[in-house]
Structure formats: C-alpha cells, structure tokens
C-alpha cells in the first residue's frame, strides 16, 4: 500500500478513535457509579453492541498506534530496512489483536 493511503488510513482511524476512545474513557474510566465492578463488566460483556465496539476500538487503535510508531522508528533509525519494521509491526499487531480480541469474545 502506498504511503499516501497509509497516511489517509491514519487520519480515518484517528477521527474514529476520537469518538470511540472518548466514549470508552467516559463510560469505563471517568463516569460515576462503578463501571469496573465484575457485575458491570459482565453486563457489558453480554452485549453484542459492546463486543463490536471493543473490537472496532482495537482495530482502529492498533492501526493508528502501530502506524505512528512505524513513522517514528523509520524516521529515527533510518538504517533499519523499512520492510523489516513493517513486518515486525504487522506481526506484533496481529498477535496483540488475537490476544486482546479473545478476552471480550470469550466473555460474550
């Protein structure tokens, strides 16, 4: 994929994360009540809306974060071959996605 398309995807995921992470921060971290009790997370875990929400946050977050990291690595360590950086980050991204998506899917 061209650098321009990768960058446009970075913008799209950034805009998406603004709303998705904003919602997650308010609902699960900053709001009143007990959003992190076992009962509360079990209730969200049984909802297909929250399952889709978490998987979407994960996809957007991993792409945005790892593409940002790729930009910094390639710019800061220019001797590293770009393909090595790309494949390392893609492998790490798939592994993290598998682990992180398994948690809400297994609880659903």
């Amino acid at each position: 994929m061209s650098e321009t398309r990768l960058k446009i995807l970075q913008y799209i995921t950034g805009i998406g994360l603004f709303f998705l992470v904003g919602t997650h921060l308010i609902v699960s971290h900053l709001s009143g009540g007990e959003p992190t009790t076992w009962e509360s997370i079990a209730e969200r875990a049984s909802s297909s809306f929250w399952l889709a929400f978490y998987v979407l946050v994960l996809i957007f977050g991993l792409y945005h974060g790892l593409h940002g990291l790729r930009t910094i690595i390639i710019e800061s360590i220019p001797r590293l071959p770009a393909k090595v950086v790309d494949w390392t980050l893609v492998t790490a991204g798939i592994a993290i996605f598998g682990y992180a998506a398994y948690i809400p899917i297994s609880a659903f």
């Binding site: 650098e3 390639i74 710019e75 800061s76 220019p78 001797r79 590293l80 071959p81 770009a82 950086v85």
Partner: peptide, 10 residues
C-alpha cells in the same frame, strides 16, 4: 540504505 531510500535522511 534501508528506509533512507524512501525518505530524506534524519
């Protein structure tokens, strides 16, 4: 070398 072939050297 490496990614320098696609970017200006930093």
């Amino acid at each position: 070398t490496g990614s320098q072939s696609r970017h200006l050297p930093n």
